[in-house]
C-alpha cells in the first residue's frame, strides 16, 4: 500500500469520525444531508458484498466493516435518535436522491467489468459514490452558517477523493496490470465535484472569515 492510498483511507476515516463526533457529543446533525448519508450507506452495502466472497487482508476487512457500520449508524441516528433527529434540516435537504440511483443502475448494467451480480453492484456503487455528495453540497449552499465540523467533514471527504486519484497515478506507474477505468473515471468525476467547495473553503481560511458558499 502506498502513502497516498493510506493517507486517503485515513482522511476518509477521519471524516467519518468528525461526523460521529458531531452526532455523539454535540447531539446535532445540523447541516448534514441525510440524503447523502443514505446514498453512502447504499454505496458501501453494494460495494462490500465481496466481504462474503473475497478475502484481501485484515486491514481491508476491518475498514470495510467500519465504513459499513458507521454509514448505517449515521443514517439511523439522523432518522431515529430522539435528540439528534430534531437538529436535521429537513426542509432544506430536499434533493431527490432516489432519482440519482436509477441512472447509476442503468449505467452499471451497461458498463461493468463483467456482467455478473457482484460486478454490476460494484460498478453501481462507484457511479453512485461519484454523485452521492451532491445533496450535501446543495445543502451547504442553502445553509447560511456552515459550522466548523460540517466544513471539516466535507473537506476531509474531498481530500480522501483527491488522495485516491494520486494513489491511482502512483499505482499505474508502479504496478503491472493495474488498470481500472470504471474506478478512475467515476473517481475523477467525484473529485471534480469538490473543486468549487475547495475553492471557497480555502478562500475563507486564507481570509480568516466564516465559510459561506455563494447562493
Amino acid at each position: 500500500m502506498n502513502i497516498f492510498r493510506l493517507a486517503g483511507d485515513m482522511t476518509h476515516l477521519f471524516s467519518v469520525l468528525v461526523l460521529l463526533l458531531k452526532i455523539h457529543t454535540i447531539k446535532s446533525c445540523a447541516g448534514i444531508s441525510l440524503k447523502t448519508q443514505e446514498l453512502y450507506a447504499i454505496v458501501f452495502t453494494t460495494r462490500y458484498l465481496d466481504l462474503f466472497t473475497t478475502y484481501i487482508s485484515l486491514y481491508n476487512t476491518i475498514m470495510k466493516l467500519i465504513f459499513l457500520g458507521s454509514s448505517i449508524s449515521i443514517v439511523w441516528y439522523m432518522r431515529h435518535h430522539k435528540v439528534v433527529r430534531r437538529s436535521y434540516d429537513k426542509d432544506q435537504d430536499t434533493f431527490r436522491h432516489y432519482l440519482l440511483m436509477l441512472p447509476c443502475l442503468l449505467l452499471a448494467l451497461l458498463i461493468n467489468e463483467k456482467f455478473t451480480f457482484l460486478e454490476v453492484m460494484w460498478a453501481f456503487s462507484l457511479y453512485l459514490e461519484a454523485v452521492a455528495i451532491l445533496p450535501q453540497l446543495v445543502l451547504l449552499q442553502r445553509t447560511r452558517n456552515i459550522d466548523n465540523l460540517t466544513g471539516q467533514y466535507v473537506l476531509l471527504l474531498g481530500a480522501y477523493r483527491a488522495l485516491y486519484v494520486l494513489n491511482w497515478i502512483y499505482r499505474y506507474f508502479t504496478e503491472e496490470n493495474y488498470v481500472h477505468w470504471i474506478t478512475w473515471v467515476s473517481g475523477i468525476v467525484q473529485t471534480l465535484l469538490y473543486a468549487d467547495f475547495f475553492y471557497y473553503y480555502f478562500q475563507s481560511w486564507k481570509n480568516n472569515v466564516k465559510l459561506q458558499l455563494p447562493a
Partner: peptide
C-alpha cells in the same frame, strides 16, 4: 486479455 486485478481498494 489482462490478468484479473484484485479489487483491493476501499
Amino acid at each position: 486479455s489482462k490478468a484479473k486485478v484484485n479489487k483491493d481498494e476501499l
